[in-house]
Design a protein around this nucleic acid. Structure first.
Lengths: 277, 277
DNA sequence: CAAATAGTGTCTCTAAGACAATATCAC
DNA sequence: GTGATATTGTCTTAGAGACACTATTTG
């Protein structure tokens, strides 16, 4: 009879073939954009971070940031390490999306990916400043179901001086397996690397679920905010509108008043709040 | 300048260290138990499938069924293969719980596990019959938060003639990471192998979320069922009670009437329904 | 003052919880 | 008949949506 110690000393983990394991991170940020009317508040855009691949495969294609899992870390630590390396910013949320393990999803071989959902505040990115690296850019996100049932994911990079604009249009089909799992099948990747169009579709779906909950909304905002700012973030993510009076009633239990007010907005000042709870 | 083809031909995937990848499946079933009162309906118990390990490590401990991922399959296919091998039954639901990758979670080395949630009907298990193998057993599940905030997971196997009863009591602490993820930290594994106590706690939590939705409830039931059966399954999973009148009103939109009725129950016959939608 | 956001009050409709009442079966 | 579940109806309350109205700021 073998003891556990004896068994483990003889156990050879190399007897079985093993996959490489990566993490890919769908990092979202709400970007506010000034309007030309001094009275009107800035407009929000939901954006996602993509990196331009410098090496094969999918060289010069846009992809989610990510990298290989190391032996001494969890997949969560790996995702945090990768997104922090890429942005120089610590995210405020980092949650699992799922595992993508379809054989053949990566031309380099047997590689399975753990996808993560992440939230980054515009405030923190502005502090870091150096968003000049052309290989990492925030793309505006558009994601809606078409009349024919397919989903259209459109990611667009506004061209600035010296760089041209990019627009990636993917078509996906939502499929429900016999066992209840929903996945987005890629009908047209729109130029995105690997199966990242499907991962991003899953990420946006997840975000829209999370965004029913105010705590996820607060993650996108600075410490102090107006109620209208919260409302606009939720409306941007869910692509809906809600009457301000009703929104105030709903959110009232989740926030704490401060004595501070906004200034110089061209209209009545608004009270600032902090997250409650 | 290299072409993609040249690049891939030179690419050696063995340059990086790789983990072994497994799946573990938390398979749930609702078991009904006859009462001694002929008028009273049978009582339900939520149960989970555990297997007794025949090899080191954790030899003779109870564990979730599962196994190693093969190169030509997805993690979902692996989970389906493993649970089908173990029970000879095709599950009606199979959904991801999450990835468990804490270094040191497996004494054999670097092994990360993809956990799955699965539902199996009592009907299908009864058809297979041969549940005699002593190494795979359905344990009754009890999972509640204690007064001190810790969670108590208790799995019990009712002893039948020739086999003794088993009771595994785990203590877990729910922790929320800085980034919003909830995990169950194991304070006392209660004798369960590996980190499976934490996986089961996550699985039961997930089940209780899913069970708000009638579609998951229907998965536990045969094709035709009474409304009271649906109610009892939901009550068993969520550990709550609800007034029958209110339950009927809620579920009404999700079911379709048949012309059949139950018989010989010692009380008024109940109409059978099918899942709607 | 015009246009924009800030903030309050109120009406209606719906969904959920509580509970009363009646129906029907096997023993 | 008794005790169990089956089934319907109604009262009350909480929350969401719609909308009217007032308040305050800057060019």
């Amino acid at each position: 009879m073998q003891s556990e110690k004896q068994y483990l000393s003889q156990y050879n983990i190399n007897d079985f073939e093993r996959p490489s394991v990566t993490t890919d991170i769908a990092a979202f940020m709400i970007r506010s954009e000034e309007t030309d009317n001094y009275k009107r508040d800035s407009e929000n855009r939901l954006s996602i971070l993509l990196v331009k691949r410098g090496v094969h495969p999918y060289k010069d294609c846009w992809a989610l940031p990510g990298g290989f899992l190391k032996p001494d870390e969890t997949v969560e630590e790996c995702a945090l390490r990768e997104i922090t390396e890429e942005t120089n910013v610590t995210p405020v949320a980092l949650l699992p999306i799922g595992v993508f393990s379809e054989p053949g999803r990566d031309p380099r071989g047997w590689i399975i990916s753990n996808a993560f959902f992440s939230v980054i505040t515009e405030e923190s990115v502005k502090q870091v400043g150096g968003d000049d690296a052309a290989d990492a850019q925030w793309f505006d996100v558009f994601f809606e179901q078409e009349n024919n049932g397919d989903y259209h994911l459109s990611l667009s990079l506004r061209g600035s001086t010296g760089s041209e604009s990019v627009k990636l249009d993917s078509i996906l089909k939502k499929e429900r397996t016999k066992f209840g799992k929903n996945t987005f099948m890629i009908k047209d990747s729109g130029g995105l690397a690997f199966d990242h169009a499907g991962i991003i579709a899953a990420a946006v779906s997840l975000l829209r679920n999370y965004a029913q909950d105010f705590n996820t909304i607060f993650d996108f905002l600075p410490e102090k905010f107006t109620l209208n700012e919260v409302q606009k973030v939720q409306e941007t993510i869910l692509n809906t509108t809600i009457l301000p009076a009703n929104f105030r009633r709903k959110i009232n239990d989740y926030v704490i008043e401060t004595d501070e007010y906004t200034q110089g907005a061209g209209h009545r000042p608004a009270r600032l709040y902090r997250r409650g709870h």
